[in-house]
Nucleic acid binder design. Structure first.
Lengths: 222, 222
DNA sequence: TAATTAATACCCATTATTGGGTATTCGATA
DNA sequence: TATCGAATACCCAATAATGGGTATTAATTA
């Protein structure tokens, strides 16, 4: 075992021989399953779990972790917010996204944020363990599937991303609010909302509302 | 231990003390996790797993199982097809759906099909074990969340189903065709399409296009 | 500091959607 | 045969959405 994982061995002993993992997923059954999976390894131990972002944040404030593994889609708050918060609270923490089926946009967002590993739930469980080994070793891990998602995304012009305000409006559209209602909700003029809609349709290459809704579904803005 | 699970004890011994479970999910990581979860119980053992419907069907043809646990959404074929096939090949098999977030329509479809248990991935893992105990005991198990999904579905009058023509039009709407285009495609007047749209909105209780698209997604008309 | 971007708001006009009706024809069912 | 559901088609009118612009302000970035 001498020298495994490079220079992390000594650190390891100090940490009672197991890296402490915080596991976050809003599906308890899956959470329990992944926990067993990780705990059956030699090097990693899930010391805490959470089924929502809020309680995960509480844990990060009060407990020490080496690794944070989190789902992306979790109700109001996403894994994105959680990771940002975690990096502030514990700068040394390594982060791994364990997600379902993500769009190029989301993958890019998270990589830009500096996640250390990215694994899909449709990957093999060896991927998960490989990711853990890589990130504790200071490297980055992307599963093959994620790599291909990124390749998918390169052909589209970079200017296709919606601004925060535009995303906000898309979300309200999907919630079945009309232009007039959205204007009231956001305390802005109806004309402004119309302008936003026009820009959104152009950016997302949608020819009408229906196409936009489908875009929203595909890009997890629902 | 005498008499546990009613009269299934003797049967149990014959089966080498563990119920044989086939576990099907197209997400390997989740599959591995659930497998560990079930195998850590006293009574159940996952003897085979599959990550797609086709190979699950192969297994059902060649191996004996007491229980089939399957996801619903799995690429081309759904858990629905798998369950129908399993009931034919092994009439005594008990079936449990382990699914993500299902609409009343899907839940109803599966219950009509005669699934023995229904658990959501967002349920606790105790739900899964409770479901296993119930179904091996000849009873039916629905998690609380499923029960409430069903209750959601009952308030709508039974006459809410769309006619074939209406469904056809919904599908064209979702394909981003306008009223005018739909009229051309179906060789009918634009007024007729408008009438259909009105009736569709009324029947589906949709206040606008967006709501209708969401209805279509939920009811698999996409 | 200059240039760019995001958010705001308006002008023009056209097309699409929605909501309230009524009515006819055809085929199936009671 | 009488009734009903489904598909067809129209009336009228109001509201919503789309497509083409331009423009101002604040903030950020080069």
């Amino acid at each position: 075992m001498v020298g495994f994982l490079g220079n992390t061995y000594l650190k390891h002993i100090k940490r009672m021989n197991k890296y402490k993992v915080l596991l976050v997923d809003d599906h308890p059954i899956l959470l329990e399953g992944s926990k067993n999976l990780i705990n059956s390894s030699e090097l990693y131990k899930v010391t805490f779990t959470a089924t929502n972002v809020q309680s995960a944040m509480e844990l990060i404030k009060s407990e020490d972790f080496d690794i944070l593994i989190t789902d992306y889609e979790m109700g109001d708050l996403t894994g994105s917010e959680l990771i940002q918060m975690a990096k502030v609270a514990q700068p040394e923490i390594k982060t791994i996204i364990l997600s379902m089926h993500d769009s190029p946009a989301i993958v890019k967002e998270l990589l830009k944020l500096g996640v250390n590993g990215y694994v899909l739930k449709s990957d093999s469980h060896e991927s998960m363990l490989a990711a853990l080994d890589k990130v504790t070793n200071g490297k980055r891990y992307l599963s093959d599937n994620i790599a291909s998602i990124l390749i998918e995304g390169i052909d589209q012009p970079p200017s296709s991303a919606l601004t925060p305000r535009e995303e906000e409006i898309v979300k309200l559209i999907v919630k079945e609010f009309s232009t007039k209602q959205i204007a009231e909700i956001l305390f802005i003029s109806q004309r402004t909302v119309e302008t936003h809609r026009k820009n959104i349709l152009k950016k997302t290459k949608s020819s009408n509302l229906v196409a936009l809704i489908k875009y929203a579904y595909d890009h997890k803005l629902v």
